[in-house]
């Protein structure tokens, strides 16, 4: 019976972590769909978003939830600047050069965070939260907010991709680049919007991760591997798969703490990812962007 309670409790934590991973993985997946490379600086975009949100509420004294839109704006602009200043110039060469560049960019962004905000651990002023008890399962209010915020963000993204012209153009480019280009889709504009959205989603994940635990300059890098695992599990290039992938990876990571040291959580995500790569490299979920 105790085991069952533990299992349910860990599943709750897993869904929370999974929501955060999903937001990151959608961005990785979209960028891969359009630009055909794995964006290694995505974790550090999350970090930037979390810290921008922190500064915004510290300066304006706004309620803590304002960290989300502020961080999303900050990271979206950062992603756009990085693309225009660097990635744009090497896009025409092979995608693997972009991969190297983004790996370097990850370290550049992280050192900028360290220079501006310092290396120490910081946290959002959430105060002490009294958990709600349902039967013997405890639920922290923050966790409910994190899940709700994810649902809102994902719904907004879904509406954007299916209802707006530019969203449809984005799906077209991800489906078939050549066909999309001959039909006159403004490629450059679609790429810019992809970066804005990818950056905003990454920041969403970063702010929520910061609320769930604390802010450190390496918080994004440390979660990058599980984010990639989620994107690959969902079939890279497929944002809707990334949501499912995030939830599966998040739950697997939390439930693994029943029999493994918690510090091995990223390794659990990695092992699942390798298994998927060997058995089903196309991912386990169907459905294109």
């Amino acid at each position: 019976m105790d085991l069952l309670i533990d299992l349910i409790q860990l599943t709750v934590y897993g869904v929370v972590l999974g929501s955060i991973l999903a937001l990151g993985a959608i961005g990785v997946s979209m960028i891969f769909g359009i630009l055909r490379f794995a964006h290694f600086a995505h974790g550090d975009l999350m970090t930037i978003g979390a810290y921008v949100g922190l500064s915004f509420i510290a300066v304006t004294d706004a309620p803590i939830w304002w960290a989300l839109p502020a961080g999303m704006t900050g990271a979206a602009l950062t992603a756009l600047v990085v693309d225009q200043a660097v990635y744009k110039h090497i896009r025409r060469t092979q995608p693997v050069i972009l991969l190297i560049s983004s790996f370097g960019m990850a370290l550049v962004l992280r050192s900028i965070v360290q220079i501006i905000w310092g290396p120490s651990v910081q946290s959002y002023p959430t105060g002490i939260q009294r958990p709600w008890w349902i039967w013997e399962i405890s639920i922290v209010p923050n966790h409910v907010w994190i899940m709700l915020a994810t649902v809102v963000i994902v719904t907004a993204l879904h509406l954007f991709l299916t209802r707006t012209r530019i969203g449809k153009a984005m799906r077209a480019m991800s489906d078939n680049m050549d066909l999309a280009l001959v039909t006159g889709i403004p490629a450059e504009r679609v790429i810019m919007i992809t970066w804005l959205i990818g950056g905003a989603l990454a920041a969403g994940a970063g702010v929520l991760l910061g609320m769930d635990s604390r802010l450190t300059p390496t918080m994004g890098w440390n979660i990058l591997l599980p984010v990639f695992a989620a994107a690959i599990l969902g079939g890279i290039g497929r944002p809707y798969g990334a949501i499912a992938g995030g939830l599966v990876i998040g739950m697997a990571m939390e439930i693994s703490t029943l029999f493994l040291e918690p510090s091995y959580k990223p390794a659990v995500a990695f092992v699942i990812m390798v298994a998927v790569l060997i058995v089903r490299p196309q991912g386990i979920f169907k459905g294109a962007l």
Binding site: F32, F37, A38, F40, P95, V96, L99, L225, F228, I232, I236, E261, S263, Y264, P266, A267, F270, M273, V274, L277, P281
Partner: peptide, 26 residues
């Protein structure tokens, strides 16, 4: 990783390196 594309090889190798570092630290 023999049959994997470049991007997957990149992710797999950094995953191995980070996992090894976790093992060394723990």
């Amino acid at each position: 990783t023999a049959r994997l594309r470049t991007d997957y090889l990149a992710i797999a190798t950094i995953g191995i390196a980070e996992t090894l570092r976790l093992i060394i630290a723990n």
